[in-house]
Amino acid sequence: MIALLLSRVEAGGLERVQFNLARGLVDRGHSVRIVAGRLEGAAPCVDEVHFIAPSGAWQFLWRLLGWIRRNRPAVIVTTSNDVAVWVLLWRRWLYADAEVIVTQHLAISGPRLAARGVRWVKLACIRWAMARLLPSADAIVAVSAAVAADMRAELGLDGISIDVIHNPIVAVADAAAPDLPCPEAWPFPRDGVPVLVFVGRLAPEKRLDLLFAAFMQVRATLPVRLLVLGAGPIAAQLEQWRQDAGVGIDCRLMGQMQDVLPWIANSDILVLPSDYEGFGNVLVEAMQCATQIVATDCPSGPAEILDHGRFGQLVAVGDAAALAVALRRSLDGSFRVERDALLARSAEFSIDRAVDAYERVFTAKEERVPPSFQR
């Protein structure tokens, strides 16, 4: 059995990636179990998850040990840093025969540098433990080359192999994404006014303040509308900005959507103004939909996904004016990536390709038994 571990399940990109990976592995004949602590909010596909800790994180850490001892998975894949530390700390005594694969989905440096107070102390402690325990993993996987480089710099992993496996996003069934019909809940008139769309968690690091400022700058000279899909801690603040600016129907906050592809496919530009990302799944989803892209050149995924600006515009982090200029260039057609090029690029992030890479990692255990655990 292959166990994919999630500390919690919510309607986010990490969850979609794990569901895609699990289904791809099952299609290849593997036995797979997604094991998670608790469910937060509404999330799709929860019937595919084995929940073990509805009370929270500490309950999950203790109950996970018992679950592993009872079920004896051959492969354990971690997705969060604190869980990776816990699994590696106890593996020698409790489940030494299991293959432990640590996957890194977010740059370590971004959240650490942005944190303050107790959260900074927590992240610093986890970073210290990771530097000492990750070399004992059977394999380390980073979702982008930039995340791998960040891991080496943050954890001192020079000489330790890190496999780069891009997130599994595109399935064969998604090939018709550019032609998806307009959602029934579409809030705007179909009058030819271009639509900017943001899809993601409404959190400070996503820099919705920059997006809103750039939208207002563009709106001063061009007709344009803004569509925001997602939920998070700054949702109320964003709604207040919308009301204060008096943009009315030209800016709509639609909340969390389980299937974002029809919304992206019927928008003109996908905007990702983050301070940092681990990968940027929504960029691949936009390319699936042949939708133009403007993103900040932030750590760690956008430049890699967009091939340093070939498949979408990259602008400086934190610069609303530069973001507005890039949006105008896409709107007036002075920068445009052709449909076929976007679709071909999105296919490089297929589920099949990711599963191929993970299978190679799983079967390479005999060739790299960590020295500290050789028997």
Results as ranks from 00 to 15, higher is better:
residue 192 G to W: 11
residue 41 G to N: 04
residue 208 L to H: 00
residue 374 Q to H: 14
residue 275 D to G: 09
residue 38 R to D: 13
residue 46 V to H: 13
residue 28 R to M: 13
residue 163 D to I: 13
residue 126 I to K: 00
residue 322 A to T: 11
residue 292 Q to M: 06
residue 176 A to P: 01
residue 305 I to Y: 04
residue 210 L to C: 04
residue 24 G to F: 05
residue 36 A to G: 10
residue 346 S to A: 15
residue 200 G to E: 04
residue 152 R to H: 04
residue 139 A to Y: 11
residue 374 Q to K: 15
residue 360 R to W: 02
residue 35 V to A: 06
residue 282 V to A: 00
residue 143 V to F: 14
residue 152 R to I: 08
residue 199 V to P: 09
residue 130 M to T: 03
residue 193 V to I: 12
residue 98 A to E: 01
residue 4 L to M: 15
residue 304 E to H: 12
residue 120 W to K: 11
residue 291 T to W: 07
residue 125 C to S: 06
residue 315 V to A: 05
residue 99 E to V: 06
residue 156 G to L: 11
residue 303 A to T: 01
residue 143 V to M: 11
residue 63 R to E: 11
residue 23 R to H: 08
residue 104 Q to M: 14
residue 144 S to Q: 01
residue 245 A to R: 00
residue 172 V to C: 13
residue 126 I to R: 01
residue 364 A to E: 13
residue 137 A to F: 12
residue 135 P to V: 12
residue 166 H to G: 13
residue 50 H to F: 04
residue 251 C to S: 00
residue 247 V to N: 10
residue 202 L to T: 00
residue 333 G to P: 04
residue 33 R to M: 06
residue 101 I to E: 12
residue 113 L to C: 00
residue 132 R to E: 11
residue 154 E to F: 09
residue 36 A to F: 10
residue 284 V to A: 04
residue 193 V to Y: 05
residue 144 S to P: 05
residue 138 D to M: 08
residue 131 A to L: 14
residue 371 P to C: 10
residue 360 R to H: 12
residue 184 E to R: 11
residue 306 L to K: 02
residue 104 Q to F: 05
residue 183 P to T: 12
residue 190 R to W: 05
residue 80 S to Q: 14
residue 170 V to Y: 04
residue 350 S to A: 08
residue 274 S to Y: 02
residue 41 G to D: 06
residue 346 S to R: 02
residue 110 G to N: 02
residue 314 L to F: 04
residue 250 D to M: 06
residue 184 E to C: 10
residue 284 V to N: 06
residue 222 L to I: 05
residue 227 L to Q: 07
residue 25 L to H: 05
residue 277 E to R: 07
residue 342 L to S: 05
residue 372 S to M: 14
residue 28 R to L: 12
residue 239 E to P: 00
residue 318 G to T: 03
residue 332 D to V: 12
residue 373 F to R: 15
residue 163 D to W: 14
residue 41 G to K: 05
residue 182 C to S: 12
residue 285 E to P: 07
residue 85 V to Y: 00
residue 100 V to I: 15
residue 324 A to T: 14
residue 91 R to M: 08
residue 6 L to M: 08
residue 283 L to C: 06
residue 76 I to Y: 09
residue 140 I to Y: 12
residue 192 G to Q: 08
residue 330 S to H: 07
residue 100 V to R: 13
residue 155 L to K: 07
residue 141 V to K: 14
residue 316 A to P: 07
residue 290 A to V: 10
residue 143 V to H: 14
residue 14 L to K: 03
